[in-house]
Design a protein around this nucleic acid. Structure first.
Length: 475
RNA sequence: CGGGAUGUAGCGUAGCUUGGUAUCGCGUCUGCUUUGGGAGCAGAAGGCCGCAGGUUCAAAUCCUGUCAUCCCGACCA
């Protein structure tokens, strides 16, 4: 029987409310008493930990070392890089009192750590032998946001920030593109999210960066969500912070710098891309619980015993498994674990025991299948893999269906109305970019790496267009 | 930060116009019966009505401020 109080808002009724409902009912987070600062509850934090595991291992495989930098940056230091400061100044949180005294040099709670890394690098990089430096830190940062939403935009969020120094521009650029590829792999293989890889326009790039690259995900409400970025800085930052090394030939040079990061915003992507009206749908490889076992008629002879056997079989596969032997009814448990997005549910009762089988329900499709117990060992890993692929395919199809090539302002408007990306040829002028934003509120998400031209006229100004650009409304 | 809406038990709510010690459902706890899609019966606990001031003999209700959440803009990962 439908229990209205347990249900969440339907997506089609109010997508934003659905999102918030899922965040709370799936116990991913809770609000704290300070605006924009959320509590990452165990279930939500565990997803982040899985993301961390994957990325940390990939980062280290290409020579990255983890470090930890201070939480605070003296204002005087922060102000060294002009363009960067202008980008962040409006959203910094500043500590002004230490103990009982006003601070002479106020302390900025890091909104990002470019300047701390740069300052440190100026001390430890002296010779070409000290390069490259590929450092990363896992931490939280604070940005005083005006409007906040769980995971999507918080005043504090968790992330990793890589800050790298190389002797040459080529190496630095290669590093930030390699990392972008790792982010993309994370999406494809782990999160089941198809990202669009591309370069940001000058207008949209990071404060102080020469080049900014991003991975963009498309949400079911038609809005794009930037899910990760990498930046190439050139030598400007290094120069501002006096990072100088002596090269083999004895000359003094500035290294080429890059940075890259993904944040807990990825959880927002996961929730929206895959979720449905029954709640969360987690990609199998980040699900904190991958398989849940529900005993049916627990009091009946042999049921619990058989459930424990199944538990052991799944555990042995190195999977994250939970058995729920609480006294809730099976129906309650089904709904509960659907809300939590657990990829596979195993139901086991007297009827199954007779047939030496279990019932397996797939969260992503709702499909129920019967599997003989002796086949479980082989079948479960297969199912998890195919679920991940099905989820990716579904999201990819949505992405394709909502990427529309447009050749006129009229088509652009229609494409944005439908939701998703309006793909157009662009002359490269910021004026045209601004005009689209003014008329539609959509922004240039990126110049996708796939630059297959399909016209040579900019629909805004009518001049010659050479670049493929994706416009969309964004989070 | 501008415009709009909303805050009453863990969740969802009634009451507010016309001030007088807070309603109902779900959840929680106990017991028994149950268990293949959010179980049934019986009993119980749980609230300084978001917070802070003010008006009043008396404030959930009226006034001011503030905080939070949601929506629409501007800004940003």
């Amino acid at each position: 029987m439908e229990n209205k109080n347990e249900a969440i808002t339907r997506q089609e009724d109010d997508f934003a409310q659905w999102y918030t409902d899922v965040c709370r009912k799936a116990e991913l987070m809770d609000y704290s008493s300070v605006k924009g600062f959320i509590i990452y509850r165990p279930y939500g934090y565990a997803i982040w930990e899985e993301i961390q595991k994957y990325l940390d291992q990939r980062f280290k495989a290409i020579g990255t070392e983890n470090v930890y930098m201070p939480l605070v940056i003296p204002e005087s230091l922060f102000n060294k890089e002009k363009e960067h400061v202008e980008g962040f100044a409006p959203e910094t949180l500043i500590a002004t009192i230490g103990g009982k005294n006003e601070l002479d040099d106020r302390l900025i709670i890091r909104p990002t750590s470019e300047v701390l890394f740069s300052e440190h690098y100026s001390k430890i990089i002296k010779s070409y032998r000290d390069l490259p430096k590929i450092y990363n830190q896992w931490c939280s940062v604070v940005r005083w946001e005006k409007t906040t939403r769980p995971f999507l935009r918080g005043s504090e969020f968790l992330w990793q920030e890589g800050h790298v120094m190389f002797a040459s521009a080529e190496e630095a650029r290669k590093n930030v593109l390699d990392i972008l590829e790792i982010y993309n792999d994370l999406g494809r293989d782990v999160l089941a999210i198809p990202f669009v890889k591309g370069r940001k326009t000058d207008k949209e790039k990071f404060a102080g960066a020469k080049e900014t690259y991003s991975i963009e995900a498309l949400m079911p409400d038609g809005k794009a969500l930037q899910s990760g970025t990498t930046h190439y800085f050139g030598t400007d930052f290094a120069k501002a912070f006096n990072v100088v090394y002596q090269d083999k030939d004895g000359s003094l040079k500035s290294p080429h710098q890059g940075s890259w990061g993904v944040s807990t915003r990825l959880l927002g992507s996961i929730i929206m891309v895959h979720g449905d009206d029954n709640g969360l749908v987690l990609p199998p490889f980040v699900a904190p619980i991958q398989v849940v076992i529900i005993p049916i008629q627990m009091a009946k002879e042999g049921v619990m015993k058989k459930c424990h056997e199944i538990y052991k079989i799944v555990k042995k596969l190195n999977l994250r498994v939970k058995m729920d032997d609480s006294d809730h009814t099976p129906g309650w448990k089904y709904a509960e674990y659907e809300m939590k997005g657990i990829p596979l549910r195993i139901e086991l009762g007297p009827r199954d025991i007779e047939k030496d089988q279990v019932v397996i329900a797939k969260r992503n499709t709702g499909e129920k299948i019967f599997v003989k117990i002796h086949d479980l060992e082989e079948k479960i890993p297969e199912l998890l893999k195919s679920i991940s692929e099905e989820m990716y395919e579904r999201a990819f199809k949505y992405l394709l269906d909502h990427t529309t090539e447009v050749k006129s302002m009229d088509e652009l408007n229609k494409a944005l109305e439908k939701g998703g990306y309006a793909k157009m040829m662009w002359c490269g002028e910021e004026a045209c970019e601004n005009k689209i934003k003014e008329l539609t509120t959509a922004t240039a998400r990126c110049l996708p790496f796939n630059q297959t031209a399909f016209s040579d006229v900019c629909p805004v100004c009518g001049k010659k267009a050479t670049k493929v650009v994706l416009f969309a409304k964004a989070y």
